[in-house]
Design a protein around this nucleic acid. Structure first.
Length: 207
DNA sequence: TAGGCCATCTGGTCCT
DNA sequence: AGGACCAGATGGCCTA
Protein backbone atom coordinates (compact mmCIF):
# COMPACT_ATOMS: atom_id res chain seq x y z
CA UNK A 1 0.00 0.00 0.00
CA UNK A 2 1.19 3.48 -0.87
CA UNK A 3 -0.18 6.92 -0.06
CA UNK A 4 -1.09 8.82 -3.17
CA UNK A 5 -2.33 12.32 -3.67
CA UNK A 6 -3.72 13.80 -6.84
CA UNK A 7 -4.26 17.46 -7.49
CA UNK A 8 -6.24 18.66 -10.49
CA UNK A 9 -6.00 21.97 -12.22
CA UNK A 10 -8.87 21.83 -14.67
CA UNK A 11 -8.87 25.45 -15.66
CA UNK A 12 -5.09 25.65 -15.92
CA UNK A 13 -4.89 28.68 -13.72
CA UNK A 14 -2.15 27.16 -11.65
CA UNK A 15 -4.38 26.62 -8.67
CA UNK A 16 -5.72 23.27 -7.65
CA UNK A 17 -9.38 22.80 -8.39
CA UNK A 18 -9.76 19.40 -6.90
CA UNK A 19 -7.83 17.01 -4.70
CA UNK A 20 -8.02 13.27 -4.36
CA UNK A 21 -5.97 11.17 -2.06
CA UNK A 22 -5.86 7.80 -0.48
CA UNK A 23 -4.00 4.57 -0.56
CA UNK A 24 -3.33 2.46 -3.54
CA UNK A 25 -2.31 -1.10 -4.08
CA UNK A 26 -1.12 -3.06 -7.08
CA UNK A 27 -4.68 -3.79 -8.17
CA UNK A 28 -5.66 -0.16 -7.98
CA UNK A 29 -7.82 0.56 -11.02
CA UNK A 30 -7.24 4.23 -11.11
CA UNK A 31 -9.64 5.45 -13.75
CA UNK A 32 -12.58 3.44 -12.50
CA UNK A 33 -12.13 4.53 -8.92
CA UNK A 34 -11.56 8.15 -9.74
CA UNK A 35 -14.45 8.25 -12.17
CA UNK A 36 -16.88 6.75 -9.69
CA UNK A 37 -15.59 9.11 -7.05
CA UNK A 38 -16.21 12.11 -9.27
CA UNK A 39 -19.66 10.81 -10.14
CA UNK A 40 -20.49 10.46 -6.46
CA UNK A 41 -19.41 14.01 -5.86
CA UNK A 42 -21.42 15.25 -8.79
CA UNK A 43 -24.50 13.43 -7.55
CA UNK A 44 -24.03 15.00 -4.16
CA UNK A 45 -23.36 18.46 -5.48
CA UNK A 46 -27.03 19.22 -5.85
CA UNK A 47 -27.44 19.00 -2.09
CA UNK A 48 -24.48 21.13 -1.23
CA UNK A 49 -24.31 24.70 -0.07
CA UNK A 50 -24.27 27.63 -2.51
CA UNK A 51 -20.67 27.18 -3.52
CA UNK A 52 -21.54 23.83 -5.04
CA UNK A 53 -23.45 25.38 -7.87
CA UNK A 54 -20.75 27.94 -8.36
CA UNK A 55 -17.67 25.82 -8.00
CA UNK A 56 -18.45 22.18 -7.72
CA UNK A 57 -20.66 21.69 -10.70
CA UNK A 58 -18.45 23.55 -13.08
CA UNK A 59 -15.47 21.69 -11.80
CA UNK A 60 -17.09 18.33 -12.17
CA UNK A 61 -18.60 18.92 -15.53
CA UNK A 62 -15.11 19.84 -16.60
CA UNK A 63 -13.86 16.75 -14.91
CA UNK A 64 -16.13 14.54 -16.94
CA UNK A 65 -14.95 16.10 -20.15
CA UNK A 66 -11.41 15.65 -19.02
CA UNK A 67 -11.93 12.06 -18.05
CA UNK A 68 -13.33 11.04 -21.37
CA UNK A 69 -10.02 11.61 -23.04
CA UNK A 70 -7.98 11.20 -19.95
CA UNK A 71 -5.52 8.52 -20.76
CA UNK A 72 -4.93 7.88 -17.12
CA UNK A 73 -2.13 5.55 -16.48
CA UNK A 74 -1.59 3.46 -13.45
CA UNK A 75 -0.09 5.75 -10.82
CA UNK A 76 3.59 5.38 -10.66
CA UNK A 77 4.02 5.29 -14.40
CA UNK A 78 5.27 8.63 -15.56
CA UNK A 79 3.87 10.48 -12.65
CA UNK A 80 5.79 13.46 -11.42
CA UNK A 81 6.40 14.08 -7.80
CA UNK A 82 5.82 17.57 -6.53
CA UNK A 83 8.87 19.73 -6.86
CA UNK A 84 10.48 17.44 -9.36
CA UNK A 85 10.42 18.10 -13.02
CA UNK A 86 9.00 15.55 -15.39
CA UNK A 87 11.52 14.13 -17.80
CA UNK A 88 11.72 16.38 -20.79
CA UNK A 89 11.04 13.49 -23.16
CA UNK A 90 7.93 12.45 -21.29
CA UNK A 91 4.98 12.71 -23.65
CA UNK A 92 3.51 15.34 -21.35
CA UNK A 93 -0.09 14.41 -21.77
CA UNK A 94 -0.25 16.21 -18.48
CA UNK A 95 -0.63 19.53 -20.23
CA UNK A 96 -2.93 18.04 -22.82
CA UNK A 97 -5.08 16.50 -20.13
CA UNK A 98 -5.10 19.73 -18.16
CA UNK A 99 -4.35 17.62 -15.15
CA UNK A 100 -1.67 18.08 -12.57
CA UNK A 101 -0.89 14.79 -10.97
CA UNK A 102 1.22 14.40 -7.93
CA UNK A 103 2.41 11.55 -5.88
CA UNK A 104 2.89 12.77 -2.37
CA UNK A 105 4.46 10.65 0.21
CA UNK A 106 3.72 13.30 2.78
CA UNK A 107 -0.03 12.96 3.47
CA UNK A 108 0.13 16.21 5.39
CA UNK A 109 0.81 18.19 2.22
CA UNK A 110 -2.16 16.68 0.47
CA UNK A 111 -4.43 17.23 3.43
CA UNK A 112 -3.23 20.82 3.67
CA UNK A 113 -4.01 21.33 0.00
CA UNK A 114 -7.47 19.84 0.41
CA UNK A 115 -8.03 22.13 3.37
CA UNK A 116 -7.01 25.09 1.22
CA UNK A 117 -9.59 24.10 -1.35
CA UNK A 118 -12.27 23.78 1.29
CA UNK A 119 -11.30 27.14 2.69
CA UNK A 120 -11.44 28.74 -0.74
CA UNK A 121 -14.91 27.34 -1.32
CA UNK A 122 -16.02 28.42 2.12
CA UNK A 123 -14.91 31.96 1.30
CA UNK A 124 -16.78 31.72 -1.99
CA UNK A 125 -19.97 30.90 -0.14
CA UNK A 126 -19.39 33.83 2.21
CA UNK A 127 -18.81 36.12 -0.75
CA UNK A 128 -21.97 34.96 -2.47
CA UNK A 129 -23.85 35.77 0.74
CA UNK A 130 -22.31 39.24 0.66
CA UNK A 131 -23.46 39.65 -2.93
CA UNK A 132 -26.95 38.68 -1.87
CA UNK A 133 -26.84 41.12 1.02
CA UNK A 134 -25.68 43.91 -1.32
CA UNK A 135 -28.91 43.38 -3.27
CA UNK A 136 -30.92 44.14 -0.16
CA UNK A 137 -29.30 47.32 1.11
CA UNK A 138 -30.23 50.69 -0.38
CA UNK A 139 -27.80 51.82 -3.04
CA UNK A 140 -27.60 54.83 -5.26
CA UNK A 141 -27.99 53.88 -8.90
CA UNK A 142 -24.59 55.29 -9.77
CA UNK A 143 -22.82 54.00 -6.70
CA UNK A 144 -19.85 51.71 -7.02
CA UNK A 145 -19.87 48.30 -5.40
CA UNK A 146 -19.87 48.44 -1.61
CA UNK A 147 -17.02 46.85 0.25
CA UNK A 148 -17.79 44.00 2.63
CA UNK A 149 -17.41 46.11 5.74
CA UNK A 150 -19.54 48.91 4.29
CA UNK A 151 -22.17 46.38 3.26
CA UNK A 152 -22.37 45.06 6.81
CA UNK A 153 -22.49 48.49 8.39
CA UNK A 154 -25.08 49.77 5.98
CA UNK A 155 -27.19 46.65 6.51
CA UNK A 156 -27.08 47.20 10.27
CA UNK A 157 -28.10 50.83 9.92
CA UNK A 158 -30.80 49.93 7.41
CA UNK A 159 -32.33 47.32 9.70
CA UNK A 160 -32.28 49.76 12.60
CA UNK A 161 -34.05 52.40 10.56
CA UNK A 162 -36.65 49.96 9.27
CA UNK A 163 -37.32 48.90 12.83
CA UNK A 164 -37.85 52.52 13.82
CA UNK A 165 -40.24 53.05 10.94
CA UNK A 166 -42.22 50.05 12.07
CA UNK A 167 -42.26 51.24 15.66
CA UNK A 168 -43.33 54.72 14.65
CA UNK A 169 -46.32 53.35 12.78
CA UNK A 170 -46.01 56.15 10.28
CA UNK A 171 -45.83 55.96 6.54
CA UNK A 172 -42.30 54.99 5.46
CA UNK A 173 -42.13 57.63 2.76
CA UNK A 174 -43.14 60.44 5.10
CA UNK A 175 -40.81 59.08 7.79
CA UNK A 176 -37.91 59.25 5.36
CA UNK A 177 -38.93 62.72 4.25
CA UNK A 178 -39.00 63.75 7.88
CA UNK A 179 -35.54 62.34 8.40
CA UNK A 180 -34.29 64.21 5.35
CA UNK A 181 -35.71 67.44 6.70
CA UNK A 182 -34.90 67.16 10.39
CA UNK A 183 -32.12 64.65 10.44
CA UNK A 184 -32.12 61.07 11.46
CA UNK A 185 -32.59 61.03 15.24
CA UNK A 186 -30.88 57.79 16.06
CA UNK A 187 -27.21 58.64 15.75
CA UNK A 188 -26.00 56.16 18.35
CA UNK A 189 -24.10 54.14 15.79
CA UNK A 190 -23.64 56.76 13.17
CA UNK A 191 -21.29 54.88 10.87
CA UNK A 192 -23.85 55.62 8.19
CA UNK A 193 -25.14 59.07 8.98
CA UNK A 194 -28.40 60.74 8.18
CA UNK A 195 -27.56 61.93 4.74
CA UNK A 196 -26.05 58.59 3.76
CA UNK A 197 -28.89 56.37 4.80
CA UNK A 198 -31.94 58.51 4.25
CA UNK A 199 -30.67 59.76 0.94
CA UNK A 200 -30.29 56.15 -0.15
CA UNK A 201 -33.75 55.35 1.14
CA UNK A 202 -35.23 58.27 -0.77
CA UNK A 203 -34.45 56.29 -3.92
CA UNK A 204 -36.72 53.49 -2.81
CA UNK A 205 -40.20 53.39 -4.20
CA UNK A 206 -42.30 52.82 -1.10
CA UNK A 207 -45.67 52.35 -2.78
C1' DT B 1 3.29 55.87 -3.80
C1' DA B 2 0.44 54.90 0.16
C1' DG B 3 -3.67 53.00 1.63
C1' DG B 4 -7.83 50.23 1.04
C1' DC B 5 -9.79 46.07 -0.39
C1' DC B 6 -9.58 41.47 -1.55
C1' DA B 7 -8.17 36.46 -2.37
C1' DT B 8 -5.42 32.95 -0.81
C1' DC B 9 -2.60 30.24 2.25
C1' DT B 10 -1.75 28.68 6.72
C1' DG B 11 -1.89 26.94 11.44
C1' DG B 12 -4.67 26.85 15.49
C1' DT B 13 -9.02 25.82 17.72
C1' DC B 14 -13.63 24.13 18.01
C1' DC B 15 -17.19 20.96 16.84
C1' DT B 16 -19.41 16.70 15.29
C1' DA C 1 -10.23 12.11 13.00
C1' DG C 2 -11.76 15.22 9.85
C1' DG C 3 -14.19 19.26 8.61
C1' DA C 4 -15.64 24.02 9.81
C1' DC C 5 -14.34 28.22 11.41
C1' DC C 6 -11.20 31.87 12.47
C1' DA C 7 -7.49 35.20 12.35
C1' DG C 8 -2.86 36.53 10.84
C1' DA C 9 0.34 37.00 6.97
C1' DT C 10 1.15 38.02 2.33
C1' DG C 11 0.80 39.69 -2.23
C1' DG C 12 -1.93 41.70 -6.10
C1' DC C 13 -4.90 45.22 -7.85
C1' DC C 14 -6.93 49.67 -7.86
C1' DT C 15 -7.50 54.50 -6.76
C1' DA C 16 -6.63 59.08 -4.87
Amino acid sequence: MEDIGLLFDFDQDGSTDFAFWGQMDQNFHFQTQLESFLMDCQAASGQLSPWSTFGCQSVFSDAQLTLTDLDVQSPGLGVCAEGEGCPADEPLEAAKRRTRRLVLHQPYKVQRHAANIRERKRMLSINSAFEELRCHVPMFPYEKRLSKIDTLRLAIAYIALLREILMSGSDPKSYIDECMKNGYKNQSDAIWNTSDLTARLSWIKWD
